[in-house]
Simulated assay, not measured.
Amino acid sequence: MASSIGVMDGAYFVGRNEILSWINNRLHLNLSRIEEAASGAVQCQMMDMTFPGVVPMHKVNFDAKSEYDMIQNYKVLQEVFNKLKIEKHIEVSRLVKGRPLDNLEFLQWMKRYCDSVNGGIMNENYNPVERRCKGGKDRNNRSLKSAKSLPVNTMNNSGSGHTLSPNKTCGPKQSRSSGGAGAASSLAEIQALSKQVTDLKLSVDLLEKERDFYFSKLRDIEILCQTTELENEPMSVAVKKILYAADASESPLEEAQEYLNQTLHAVEEEPEPEPEPETETEA
């Protein structure tokens, strides 16, 4: 399947706003730029959602900032591709640079591939936040085991060991049920706001496409009216009056119609040329 997605496939015409909406809705994230997915963690979790249990999520670092950490995420992704026999070359050296076009192209391919597997249907049984948290717990558990094996002199002055910070993706656990309910409510509000932002961005993207479409049409009309054969024709002059009208508060249509009426009326009133008198030919 992966090898059949060519460079002219419709997948590569999907806009960035649609890609961001696809990521945020399925993984409960709030990405606003394509380059925020350059670490490879998003791609790993998309494969985890499409093929549950195939991706070792405890190896995926969602806090990766350095190129080294990002490369480790792409190594996990490449291992998953190899396991699933997906023939897709990952341009790791280009993706980790965070360049929008490179990352957009890879995410366009990713969306096309995942949709071809699940038909574009979201896996309702998949909990993306829980999967990220589970990976964080696995990492923290290994770190705790390592901390227990350290010598006593590694403890601080208060006599307690070094405290490990909780996984940033999961956030601190709530010890009270009311706190848990509050956190769930806050998460729901964040998700609702995130969806609103995504919808607004999608609307803006559609409006921009519509604007560009009609602008290109007007530009074609302008070029046609500027051709040498037509630029002085009454209809071309009338059209250019509309195109070049400076005051947007008033429609120039009436002015253009008046110009056409006057021009046509003048043509009708113009007297026909008298025929030239015939000259007598000498016999």
Score class of each variant (00 low, 15 high):
57 M>R: 13
112 R>L: 04
99 R>W: 06
151 P>M: 03
82 N>S: 14
113 Y>Q: 01
93 S>W: 08
94 R>G: 05
113 Y>R: 01
97 K>E: 08
81 F>M: 10
59 K>E: 14
90 I>Y: 04
79 E>G: 15
83 K>Y: 09
57 M>T: 14
105 E>F: 10
90 I>K: 04
152 V>K: 15
142 R>Q: 12
74 Y>V: 07
144 L>W: 09
55 V>G: 00
94 R>Q: 14
70 M>H: 03
52 P>Q: 02
132 R>F: 06
143 S>H: 09
86 I>A: 03
62 F>A: 05
78 Q>V: 08
159 G>L: 08
119 G>Q: 00
87 E>F: 08
97 K>W: 02
151 P>A: 04
134 K>N: 12
93 S>D: 12
59 K>T: 09
53 G>R: 03
140 N>D: 15
58 H>I: 10
54 V>A: 06
131 R>D: 13
158 S>P: 05
158 S>A: 11
129 V>L: 11
145 K>I: 15
111 K>W: 05
126 Y>W: 06
113 Y>G: 00
149 S>F: 05
107 L>H: 02
158 S>Y: 12
117 V>R: 04
164 L>T: 09
139 R>G: 04
57 M>I: 14
113 Y>T: 01
114 C>P: 02
149 S>I: 05
106 F>V: 02
85 K>D: 11
157 N>W: 10
56 P>M: 00
121 I>L: 13
131 R>H: 11
91 E>C: 13
87 E>Q: 13
80 V>T: 03
53 G>I: 00
146 S>V: 12
147 A>D: 13
149 S>L: 09
112 R>S: 11
53 G>P: 01
132 R>M: 11
118 N>C: 03
64 A>N: 05
112 R>A: 14
88 K>I: 03
85 K>G: 05
123 N>I: 06
74 Y>P: 05
69 D>M: 07
103 N>P: 05
131 R>C: 10
150 L>Y: 08
128 P>D: 11
64 A>L: 08
116 S>M: 03
131 R>E: 15
75 K>A: 12
166 P>C: 08
127 N>Q: 11
86 I>Y: 04
113 Y>P: 01
107 L>S: 01
67 E>S: 12
88 K>F: 04
100 P>V: 02
150 L>T: 14
92 V>R: 00
81 F>Y: 15
146 S>C: 09
161 G>D: 06
71 I>P: 05
60 V>Q: 02
109 W>P: 00
53 G>C: 02
136 G>R: 07
149 S>Q: 10
87 E>T: 10
99 R>D: 10
137 K>N: 12
139 R>C: 05
82 N>Q: 13
51 F>D: 00
78 Q>D: 13
86 I>P: 02
158 S>Q: 13
101 L>G: 07
101 L>Y: 09
77 L>C: 01
140 N>A: 15
109 W>F: 08
63 D>T: 10
95 L>N: 00
76 V>Y: 04
126 Y>P: 01
97 K>D: 05
98 G>E: 00
149 S>V: 06
129 V>R: 11
110 M>E: 08
86 I>E: 03
159 G>N: 07
133 C>I: 11
132 R>A: 05
63 D>L: 07
106 F>Y: 03
68 Y>M: 07
133 C>V: 10
91 E>V: 07
160 S>V: 11
162 H>R: 13
153 N>P: 06
138 D>Y: 09
115 D>N: 04
88 K>C: 06
156 N>E: 11
74 Y>M: 06
150 L>W: 08
96 V>R: 00
151 P>D: 02
142 R>N: 10
80 V>I: 04
78 Q>P: 04
102 D>H: 14
